[in-house]
Each structure stands twice: as C-alpha cells, then as structure tokens.
Design a protein around this nucleic acid. Structure first.
Lengths: 326, 326
DNA sequence: ATGAAAGCGCTAACAT
DNA sequence: ATGTTAGCGCTTTCAT
C-alpha cells in the first residue's frame, strides 16, 4: 500500500518548505519562478493531488465550488433537462454539480449527506411532505419545480395554475363541456396547483376528477374505468406526463384516440409521433434550471434578501389530440 | 454568523471529554448510559452534525460510504435505469451515490473532482477516447456500458456483437437482403461492437453503412438520404435508440414506415405505441447497474484479482417494425 | 519572498 | 469506562 503523496512529500522532493508548495498549488504569485518550477516538477513526478477535505477543513470560510442537486426521477425528461441546465450554468461559474436521486423517504438523508460533503448549496425538487429539516443545513437551498413546506427559500416553479387553466380553456373552445382531470397525489404542490387551474377554468362545471395516480399504469386503469363508465368525458386533462402516457394507452386500447380529446401537462419525447400527436402544456425546464442555479449562486455569494418565488411561464403546443372537436 | 458547533462544543455542553462525544457519535458501546444520554441531549440542543471531512481526514483507512457515478446523458432511459439500479444496490450496503454528468471533455475533471471528494469508488460509462488518466485515482473504478481504453478495470457491458448480429439475422429471416447500418461514432466501443455484429451476420453481403450519427436529427437526415438514394435498403439496423428514433421520423416523413423494416439496438419508452411498433434489441440496464455496483463494492472491500469483463445478454423484442417482410 | 508554528474538527493510540 | 495527547493534510498567522 503505497502512501498517497502529501504536500510535505512534495516539499521534501522539491527541497522547499511546505508553505511554498501550498503557495504554488494555490496559484499565489509571490513565489520565485525557479522555486515554483521545482515545485511543479515534484508535483508531476509524485502525481500529487491536493486533499480537498484537508484544505476545506482549514479554510472554513472558503467554498468548495460544488453544488448539489436532489431530484426525484432522473429519467424523467423534465428532471434531466433541469439537471443539464444547472450543470451548464454551474460550469460557467467554474462549479461542479453533484446529483442525488431522491427516493421517497431518503430525501433527508441525502440532503444531510450532501451538506456533510461541504457542498456550497443545494437545489432540491422536494418530494417529502415537509422540508423543515432542511432549515438546519449549513448551505443555502433553492427549491425547484415544487414548493417546499415548512421552510422558506427561493423557489422556481412553472405557472402551474395558469398553464392548467389555459389547457382546459383550450378544450372548452373546441366545444367540450365534460372535461376530466387525472392527476397525481395532492400533497405535491404541482398537482394541487394544476387541479386548481382546472377548476378555475371550468367554474362550477367540473367534470370527473381522479387524484393519486402515481404512474402510467395507474393512469391507464383510471382512464379506462372512466371512459367505460357512465357519462364519460369528451376530453381529458392529464396533469403530468406519465399520466398523459397512461391515458394515451387507455384511449388506444379502447380505440377512442380520435374520439376523446387529450391535453397533457409537461411535454415528453415522441409526443409528436403518436397518433394523434399529443397536445401538451410545455414547461421550460432549461430556463427553470438556469434560474434556480443563478438564485443559488446569489445566495452563496451572500445575498440575504427575503425568499423569492419565481414563476416560469408554460406554453401550449397544439399537436392534434387537444384539437379534436366534441 | 453563528459558528457551526463542533465536537468540542458538545463536550463542553455535556460536561464530558471530547473523546466521549466521539464514542457516542460513532456508536461505540463503551460509554455509560447516563453519559451517553447527556451527550445525545447536547447534540440535540446544539444541532450538532459531525464534520465528515475532518473525520475522514483522520481515519484514512475508513470509507466515506459513498460512490460516484459518471454518466453521459442522464436523460437517456438506459442511463437512468443504470443509475437507479446502482443507487438501489448501494442503498442495500448503506452507501450513498453521487452522480455527475459527463459532458464530453469534462470527464477527467469530474473524475478528479469526485476522487477529491473522497468517494470510495467510481462507476464510469466512458465517453472520452482514453481513460488512462483514471489510473492515478485513489479509488477503484468499474466501467459500465462501454469499455475503457488505456486502463484495465472491471467492465460490465451488453453482449453488443451478439445482440446486433441477432437483430440482423432476424431481418435476414424475413427475407431482407439489403440491410443498412446506422451507427454512432466508432471511437465508442459500443458502436464498434454493434457494427462488428452487423458485419458478422451479413458475411460478405453488407449493405449501406453510415457512422458518426450523434443524435436523432443526424440519423433522420442520413436515413432520408439513404432511402431516397439509389438502391435503397429494405431494412435498417439502428445501433442506438436516438438513431432509431431518427430513422422512425425519416420513415414517417417518406411514408415508408410500413415498407422498410427497422430494428433498433436498445429499447426506449413508447416504442410499442408507434406505428408500426418498433422492434428492438433490449439491454438490461438494471442488471448491468447492479452488477457494476457489486463489482465495485468487491473492489472497495479489497478484492485484487485481475480485471473482469462481464457481459450482460440482450433480448430481441419483436413488435412489428422488424417483422415487415421484403 | 520564504518559512516555522499553530490549529481546523476529528479519531487513534495510549494512558488512567 | 473515560480522558489525554498527538496528528491526519492543509492553510493561516506571524516571523524573518
């Protein structure tokens, strides 16, 4: 087991003091060129790599130039785009991004683990029903996609209420009067807001509503039951893309894909290649990610104003499924 | 700025020595119950959190119970499934997983950043053309999906040659004689192997071949050119799912989706809902992730046998597009 | 411009 | 069973 070289080893090899090595490694300019060259040669030959932990331990005020991102399902195209935007924005600032998958229940553990790893800040898409525990973390936090409960911090979300209301109004314009809502668990603020938008657009005339659909399979079952039941809807608003996909499968199985209109919240790959192509309310995850990253870096740099809530607009993309008349 | 509490603060508050706090925090059993209770109370009231960096600095032999995963495109369903499987396997061992997005060129920086963060090991899907630089890292490494160049380590890959050859043979059985290959850059070992499988199945009778297709748009353009050109193929083998999707778009635009057979390597969401449904050679990313994680933990635990290459079998899933006759 | 000494928060080795 | 001392690899005084 060969010892990992330390600054002391480099100093000995280069025939200089520990501190001189430190200066060279940290790019301080107050070192004579020949000494610096000797140090660099020693660094090379020993394959020395500074020990970030030790460095961070001593200079407690400095930053590790690393932020953490905690996301639910990394495979979700929305999360992936968010993640990528954050990485790019961080790259401009010379910061690294570490990501963690937020399995339900592990949210707290992960956040603490990141915090212990001296990340300078955290961007979190909250899953758990309460984020109070985050208040005790060392590092600043920005929430994205969903709002947090029990803790105030900068938050970047889509215009969920307006986007959902716009989709439903779009269906009303086609003449639909019986419009169903299929959504996720109501403890997610996104689901609550999209449901609220749906209700707002319909006024008193809400159609059938199903909550707590956690995945495409559940949505498919619920849609089939609804469409086969009494007084089926002529149009469906799906509040999340896995639900949209479940509804597509249901309509296909019942051969009703051209008989019942469908608009989904959140775009997804291949939506335009389905039959009929799926009309969606597209979010702008790239902009959300950039915005969240910028907010976080401001906080890291010491910004201490009151927590902000930033809303990113959505766009209705008509592709066919939402333009089927009654 | 209120000072973050240290073990010393806890010791003072609890009226015990520093070492006693250390013992309690680390779950050692050689502490009298009443002292332990006092310590725990102090930890609570001060909201003390151990400083992982300092801890790791002292006990150099111990592990941080954290591994890093370096993946190209986290949004790729294959990568996402891999990632999730690794997280689950690590969870069983009580280990955390940090992920990094491997933008081309940043592979080295990220790997070093993770290594500096005292990860116990790394799982890497190599992108760069050379991985020699990884040899100098502290932590053990396992490669997944693609083989590395310039560095020997455990590697978990799909049976790319056999899977591709099987797909092409499947097309031969339907009577196709002019079968095209559309693939990614040949410096990726996966692309090379799938191309080799294609050639092997066809013997001397290879059809038109296009390499270096980096995304769906490039594949769409290449497919259109090929299908409009002289002597077009009657079947296409796409070596990666973004390419498959590009080919689907091309066929759709030319209204040839039922005239030209298509098999794609790697499954993708909604493949079964397209028209015609897309036949694929499915990989098993969950198994690959589990296998890679297990291999890495063995290495972390000190296994020093020669590097292994583990091949995970693929499965042909006939859905329609690959069963179109000539 | 360079170096010696102290100490970041913690654990290991050794008392007691 | 508990405490004391030293020191991990590094940066920060403070000398020179």
């Amino acid at each position: 087991m060969t010892h990992r070289p330390t600054m002391n080893d480099v100093a000995r090899t280069a025939g200089v003091s520990l501190k001189t090595v430190s200066r060279v490694v940290n790019g301080e300019t107050t070192v004579a060129p020949d000494l610096a060259a000797r140090v660099r040669a020693a660094v090379q030959s020993l394959d020395y790599r500074p020990h970030l932990g030790a460095s961070l331990l001593r200079r407690r005020d400095q930053h590790a130039r690393t932020i953490g991102v905690l996301l639910e399902d990394v495979s979700h195209p929305f999360s992936a785009a968010l993640h990528r935007a954050i990485v790019e924005e961080a790259g401009l600032r010379g910061a690294q991004v570490l990501a963690g998958i937020l399995d339900e229940g592990r949210e707290r553990d992960l956040a603490v683990a990141f915090d212990q790893r001296q990340t300078d800040g955290l961007i979190v898409a909250p899953m758990a029903t309460n984020q109070t525990y985050l208040a005790s973390l060392r590092a600043p936090i920005v929430f994205v996609d969903r709002e947090a409960t029990g803790m105030a911090a900068d938050t970047v979300v889509s215009t969920n209420v307006a986007g959902a209301a716009g989709a439903v109004r779009h269906l009303l314009v086609q003449g639909h009067r019986r419009i169903a809502y299929l959504g996720d668990r109501r403890n997610l603020t996104t689901a609550r807001d999209r449901h609220r938008g749906y209700l707002r657009a319909l006024g008193g005339r809400a159609g059938p509503v199903v909550h707590d659909l956690r995945d495409a399979a559940a949505a498919e079952g619920a849609a089939i039951a609804m469409l086969r039941g009494p007084d089926p809807p002529t149009a469906i608003f799906a509040a999340r893309s896995p639900i949209t996909i479940g509804v597509v499968r249901a309509l296909r199985r019942l051969r009703m894909e051209n008989a019942v209109a469908l608009i989904g919240f959140d775009d997804f790959p291949l939506a335009d290649l389905l039959d009929p192509p799926v009309t969606v309310v597209a979010q702008d995850p790239a902009r959300m990610g950039r915005t969240a990253a910028l907010a976080l870096f401001e906080r890291i740099d010491g910004e201490i104003s009151a927590p902000r809530e930033i809303r990113i607009p959505t766009t209705l993309i008509p592709r066919g499924s939402g333009e089927l008349a009654v």
